[in-house]
Design a protein around this nucleic acid. Structure first.
Lengths: 217, 217
DNA sequence: TGCATAAATGAACAATGTTCATTTATATTT
DNA sequence: AAATATAAATGAACATTGTTCATTTATGCA
């Protein structure tokens, strides 16, 4: 047992450890991908852990080796959603005029929500992903904070250019967020179907146009 | 078997039938009251049919004699919620100035939601009460339609007094509904906790003030 | 009092999230 | 290369809960 021996052993150890870590991550990602696929196809409630296991040809128990419980899966997917929405939003920092950027932010947000309604529910409505935070991590909802930050930054830029005089930054930002969230969440929870006279397919974008008119006047 | 006999029999029949109908309604209301109490105390998901049965000292089966399934209970409670919210809103028709009425409608709506968060979820977020509609009744969501109607009527009155020039009635009304819905639903789904710097307790009312400022300018 | 109808019951079932003792595969040591 | 130790995967079994239905109990009527 000389130094060289030990050195080689450690090298090998490191190599296999890395590979194992990579394989673990790959299987975890596989589970997440299957979960997302099934959520989108059949809805979140209708997707059972057994379905996810079947989808990737693993046993139920394996899912629980990689995730504490269903909430943990939901939380990870919720984080993936924020990664996508966040990057779509941050692209808009390329828009110089903050008022134009603000308008575009709303459009991006609305499109994301209507194109990914289950993801949106996970990110902004369901309690499950936040329950995971309560149980396992600290209270900070970093994903939401970062995304809201993009909006606040943009509103601040607007104020810097002389808009929204006599308005408080954060309450105003929260009101704007609420409007677009309300637009899409009423649509996603199907509260526009039986209640409106006009076609529900266009009400969200039409209403956003009215909101923008009011905001910009 | 003479006519008088038949007449008396029918009289009695009618009386007992009425009493039975009343008793049936009373037990149904009892179940609903127990369900509401438990929902508020422990949350909707955490309230089991067995809990409701225990609460009123009846067996599980009895609940299913009076309600098709849990969705039916949720739908009836959702309707009760709309009765309350609707009457609170219609009181405001006493306010002559439609712009003042509009402001007050928002305050009433927000207060209702924050004081009855579980009811609000039932009325505007959860799918369950609407699933009952899909299964049993026609598609019309009459409760929502009537309540939205109060808002539309008020916005129409505002337009009649020269406000909101160049705005479409229903899209604008939907945008306003969306804002207050967004304000309260983000709060109820606890998306303000980890994301905002300021105290989440006051953010809803502060943001509503900002929205009103923008709307009325 | 006996009968018919309605109401209430609760044991049993099905679905589903979760656990854990056991088995299988992989890595390490001799 | 074989033995051993460690890690991963397994699926049967459990707990919870919505739901059903054959049976029992109560009520109204002849």
């Amino acid at each position: 047992m000389n130094n060289v021996h030990l050195y080689l052993l450690n090298e090998i150890d490191m190599g296999t450890a890395e590979r194992k870590a990579r394989e673990k991550k790959e299987l975890k990602d596989l589970i997440l991908a299957a979960a997302k696929k099934l959520f989108i196809a059949k809805g979140i409630e209708q997707t059972k852990i057994r379905n996810i296991a079947d989808e990737i040809n693993y046993s139920v128990g394996t899912v629980y080796v990689y995730f504490k419980d269903k909430n943990a899966i939901l939380h990870d997917l919720h984080s993936l959603g924020f990664k996508q929405l966040g990057s779509e939003m941050r692209v808009l920092f390329a828009v110089e005029d903050p008022m134009e950027r603000l308008k575009a932010l709303g459009r991006v947000y609305i499109n994301f929500a209507l194109n990914n309604p289950d993801m949106y529910d996970l990110m902004f409505t369901l309690k499950a992903p936040l329950q995971f935070l309560d149980e396992v991590k600290n209270d900070q909802w970093n994903e939401g904070k970062a995304t809201f930050g993009v909006l606040v930054q943009t509103v601040e830029d607007c104020i810097g250019r002389g808009h929204f005089k006599d308005h408080k930054l954060e309450p105003l930002s929260y009101a704007i967020w609420s409007t677009v969230h309300g637009l899409v969440s009423l649509q996603i929870s199907e509260r526009t179907k039986g209640a409106c006279i006009m076609q529900p397919e266009t009400i969200v974008t039409e209403a956003y146009e009215e909101f923008v008119k009011i905001l910009m006047r």
